[in-house]
Structure formats: structure tokens, C-alpha cells
Design a protein around this nucleic acid. Structure first.
Lengths: 339, 339
DNA sequence: CTGTTAGCGCCTTCAG
DNA sequence: CTGAAGGCGCTAACAG
């Protein structure tokens, strides 16, 4: 391995001078800079990141923590996409990203501890948000920089987070159904622990109320963010005496399950039942019919959170903030007018 | 930050002793071990990974490099799934994984250089394999440990790789179609640069030959590993005078595109055209109809490659090897008997 | 079984 | 504008 000393020797300057040209210190003469850089190139010198980290106490790496069910989580195209967003900015800023690989809460917690205490990383992005999360508490207690994607349960203005206006989105997409003449509209969402679900559902309820429509409990179902979840939900809904004619589903992947179960049951979408959904994952234009869904701009969610986190880690004193990424409804073929 | 010295002082021993209990060195008395560990806990000591790395010259982290089109790559559920496999073993062995985030060839190359030269990582897993890849050449020249998922273009027995027997799989799945009475069978694959495609295609051809069926060029289409790719391919196929009744598609995601294009064109699967595919991504059981596909055991592909890589990095002299992960055909609803 | 001594490769005062 | 010296936190011989 070629070190700073080697290039110092080769150039006839001292190691500290080399160090300074690496940092592009302005008080080094252009001449020596040129010389040194040339030597670096010739010798194939590359700074050893560990040595540097050791002294500057920064790794220029961030940890990205997936929800505890990492196994199932990665199945949702939401995550790959958000990773892309994060990756784009880490890459531009010459940061690396370290992915969590634990599958249980326990494992993840241990992993985060290792990352933080071992100074593997400068900060973390939490790709989920739920009530009373151990990992988040840990991060807070240690005053370790982090940002969460979604809405924090409490201390909402003490925690930097990037989110959509899920309430507004839920309201708007539900209103779309209403405008098409639907009056019996159901909601299928994920766990009530998750803020996404709650916000979207609140929006849905607000839209119903505004239109003077009934808002009954049997139309609201909570299940897993997966295809299987969608399946069960539909069965419940179809068993109702008073079947809905429209459904608001809080995740595209769930919609997939909903769609296929509906089809199996001989219900046509959108003729018999209209469907609207959330996220606009690439799948949603592939399904038959293609989904009308709210594009939450997943990529941007990732990019913004990475940006915010990195800012936070460099200027240790960055105030916490709330970043709202705009959404946009994408109209496709899963909704039809109700006579 | 609490260091090794602090706990040494607190315990009344020397730093090296503390270091040894960290490494669980057998020549330390159980007594002192206990004492030291207690102090570590009380002080909240955690070893600084950078300091350690600096001296032992190992980071216990591996780099995972995605295909250059990382943007589109992550869209294929294949990658999240293989990450899961890799993650499972890195996690067990207390390794971390660093994900590439570059989007162009150029960026990725630079990224890998940084990872390697900066001693961020001990080894890399290449999640693709193509002819004359710059990154791979770089790794080879620098004798940096790496394994590739797939089949290397050359030096096949000098490069550790983990792969399926794609030839056999291609042959077997095609034979399935033949056994169901199909005689006009097309093949849709990805770029010819990629070994996966070539191997699967060769298997397909072998099966046709064995059955004495015709093997014509207009039945073989190469396109992108994406939904859009599937779409174009189908249009070409349907334009033929002599339409195939069966199609072998070399990737589930492509099959999705194929499926939806077929449906739009009013062809029924499997009544009019039967479809078989590869990978058994979770999507393949969600589609209508669910896909008959070869399960290549993506998770295992990832796990094996991580295992092999880590072995390689610890025993610097591990011989290169070829690891074949078994596949299994999953029969679902996309194939029907031809009268 | 344990302490002492040297660094790992780099950055950062402090002097010139 | 540049050198010398010291230290980041840890491990690894080498002594005892």
C-alpha cells in the first residue's frame, strides 16, 4: 500500500505538505501542488479512509435502516426505489451507504448499535416510523444524527423527517372516487401503528364527511402491506351485504393482491369496483387495469432525507425540520364512472 | 468517547489486556476478564472500528455492486431478493454491506476504486457478469477478492462465481412446453452480452433439437430485462405469420410485460399461448395467470456468494471455485396442453 | 498470565 | 508557504 509518506519522499516534501494538498489547502504553492499530485497519480496513491476517519472522526458513510421485516420489506418496490433516491445523493456527495441486514427487531437494534458505537457511520436514515421505536429512542438518547422517512410519533418538531402530506393525498384521491359518482367507498390500509396508514385514512374520512357520505367501520380494513394482505381484505369486503363500489388502498403492492382476488371472484375492475391506490410503484402501470394512484415521489423522499441527513452531520447544529415532498395523482384505468 | 485506555484505567490493567479480553484471548485469567468486561459495560465502552481496521487492515465490510443501470436494476425484484440473501450471511458473520450507488458505468467504476483503494471493504460481490467488464478487470489486476454472481466471460476457473445451471434449466423448462404438445416455441431473452441469456437460450435450443422441432431465428428475440422489453418482443412475435403457441421468457419481470401486452392484444394465456419464465420472483405468483417459472433460488445465490467471498477474504489463499445453486421448476397456471 | 513498546496512515497544531 | 512532532484508538510482538 502506498502511503502519504511514499509520495512525500518521491516529491521531496514532508508528509504534512502532502496531506495539505489532499485537502487542497490554499496556502500551498500551486507549484508543489502540481508536483505532489503528479507523484500521487504515478504512484497510484489513494488516501486510506480508516486512518483519516480515525483522526477526523467522520466516516462519510450513512446507515440506512429498513423496517424490521427486512425480508418482506424488500419485496415492496417502495424500498428499492427509495434506496435509489438516497444513493443518488450519497453518491454525489461522495458518501457511502451501509444497508441494514437484520431481520428481527432485536437484530436490527444490535446492528444499529454496532454501526453507531463502532463509528461505522455518521448518521442514519430510518425507513419507517412507528410508535415507540427502540432504534429511534436509542438514536435520540445518544444524540446521533438521524432522519426518518415518514412522520415521527412524537417530538414532531424535534425530529427531522421527510414525508408527504398523506392526509391531503388521501382526501384528494378519495374525492376523485366521489366525483366519479361513487358513494360506497372502502379503505384498505396497513397496520394502525404506522403513520402513513393513519394519515391516509384520516384524509379518506375527511373526504367522505365533506361529501356527506357514510363512514362505516366495516368499510375500513387494516392488514399487511403485502399482496396477501390485499387478498384477505377483499374477502371481507365482498362478504358484506352492502358491497362498496370503490376502494381506496393505501399501497400499490396491496392493490395487486386486491386486484387479483377481485378478478378471481369474478368482479371486474373498474366496471364493478373502482380502485385507487398509493405510491405509484412501477408495478402500478403494469397491472391490468393500470392503477390510478398517488405518486408520492419515492425517489425524492429518499433523496431529500439523504440530503437533510448529510447536512445535519456536517453542521452538527442543523435545526430539525419537516420536509414535505409533493405528491401527484396519476390517473390510469382502475376507476370508472358510477352510473 | 470512551476508549480502551479508559477501561484500562478503571480496571487497573493495561490497555493491551483490555484489547485481549475484547479478542477473548484464552491466556487472560477469567478473573480479569470478568473485571474488564464489567468496566466496559459500566463505562459504555465500544471498540472503535476504524482504529482497529487501521491496524488489522480489514474492515469486515463487503461491497455489493449492482449492474450499471442501477436505476432500472433495482426495479427488478431479483436484486432486492439477492440483497436479502447476502445480508443474511453478512449479518451472521458480523459483516457490513456497502451498496454501490453509481448509475453509469463510469460512476460505478470510480466508486469501486474508491471502495477498494480507500480500504472501505475487504471484498466485492459483482451482481452481474458481462464481457470484458472494466470493474472486473480492475479487481483482477489488483488481486482484490471478489466473486461474481453468474458466469464469468473468461478465466472461468480462475474466478469464483456462483451460478445456476442455466443451460439445464432452459432445456428442462422448454421440454415442459414440448411435453404439453407445443411445437412452435419462441424465446424472449435479455441482451446477448449477458451469460444468463446465452445459457438459457442454448438450453432452449437444445430442447428443440432433441425433440426434432424447428429452431428459427424469428422466434428468438433479445431485448431489455424490463416490462417494456417484454412488450416490444410480443409485438414482433404477434406480427409473425406463424405465431408461436408457447414462449420461453428469460425473466419474470419481462414476462409481466409479455403478459399484459398479450392480454391487450386479445390473446389468452394460457389458452392461446403458453408462457414459461425464469427466476420465480414473488411477482410470478401474483400475475394472472400465475407463472410457471424456474425458481433459481435467488436468495441462495446471494447467500452463497457472500459466504464464498468472506471465506476468500479471511484465508487470503482460498482457491477459486464454481458454485452451482440448484434450481427447481414451479408449475403454475401459465401453461396449457396443446391439442 | 500481563505490561511495555511500537506503530497502522493520516491530520493538525506549532514553529519557522 | 512548509516541516516536525504528537496523537486518533487499537493491536501485536516482545518481554517478563
Amino acid at each position: 500500500m502506498v502511503t502519504i509518506k511514499d509520495v512525500a519522499k518521491a516529491t521531496g516534501v514532508s508528509p504534512s505538505t502532502v496531506s495539505r494538498v489532499i485537502a487542497d489547502n490554499p496556502r500551498i504553492s500551486p507549484d508543489t501542488k502540481k508536483k505532489v499530485r503528479k507523484a500521487m497519480k504515478e504512484l497510484g496513491y489513494h488516501p486510506n479512509i480508516n486512518a483519516r476517519n480515525l483522526v477526523v472522526k467522520s466516516t462519510k458513510a450513512i446507515g440506512v435502516i429498513m423496517p424490521s421485516s427486512a425480508n418482506t420489506a424488500l419485496q415492496n418496490p417502495f424500498f428499492p426505489e427509495i434506496l435509489r433516491g438516497i444513493g443518488s445523493v450519497t453518491h454525489n456527495m461522495q458518501y457511502s451507504m451501509m444497508l441494514s441486514s437484520g431481520e428481527s427487531d432485536e437484530e436490527i437494534y444490535a446492528e444499529v448499535q454496532r454501526m453507531v458505537y463502532g463509528s461505522y457511520i455518521d448518521g442514519v436514515i430510518l425507513l419507517y416510523s412507528r410508535v415507540n421505536d427502540r432504534v429511534m429512542n436509542f438514536l435520540q438518547e445518544n444524540e446521533f444524527p438521524f432522519v426518518i422517512v415518514g412522520k415521527p410519533y412524537e417530538n414532531i418538531n424535534k425530529i427531522t423527517h421527510v414525508d408527504n402530506d398523506n392526509f391531503a393525498a388521501g382526501k384528494e384521491i378519495t374525492r376523485h372516487l366521489i366525483e366519479q359518482g361513487h358513494e360506497k367507498i372502502a379503505f384498505i390500509g396497513g397496520s394502525k401503528d404506522l403513520f402513513v396508514t393513519m394519515d391516509r385514512e384520516a384524509g379518506y374520512e375527511a373526504a367522505l364527511k365533506e361529501a356527506g357520505l357514510m363512514d362505516c367501520d366495516e368499510y375500513k380494513i387494516h392488514t399487511e402491506f403485502l399482496k396477501s394482505g390485499g387478498r384477505e381484505a377483499v374477502e371481507d369486503l365482498l362478504a358484506l351485504d352492502n358491497r362498496p363500489t370503490g376502494i381506496v388502498v393505501s399501497d400499490d403492492l396491496m392493490s395487486l393482491g386486491v386486484l387479483s382476488t377481485l378478478e378471481e371472484s369474478g368482479v371486474n375492475v373498474p366496471q364493478d369496483i373502482s380502485l385507487v391506490s398509493f405510491n405509484n410503484v412501477y408495478l402500478s402501470e403494469i397491472t391490468r387495469p393500470a392503477l390510478t394512484t398517488v405518486d408520492v415521489n419515492i425517489y425524492e423522499l429518499g433523496a431529500q432525507s439523504a440530503k437533510a441527513l448529510i447536512e445535519k452531520t456536517v453542521t452538527k447544529t442543523e435545526p430539525s425540520k419537516r420536509i414535505i415532498v409533493p405528491y401527484k395523482i396519476v390517473y390510469r384505468d382502475s376507476v370508472s364512472k358510477k352510473a
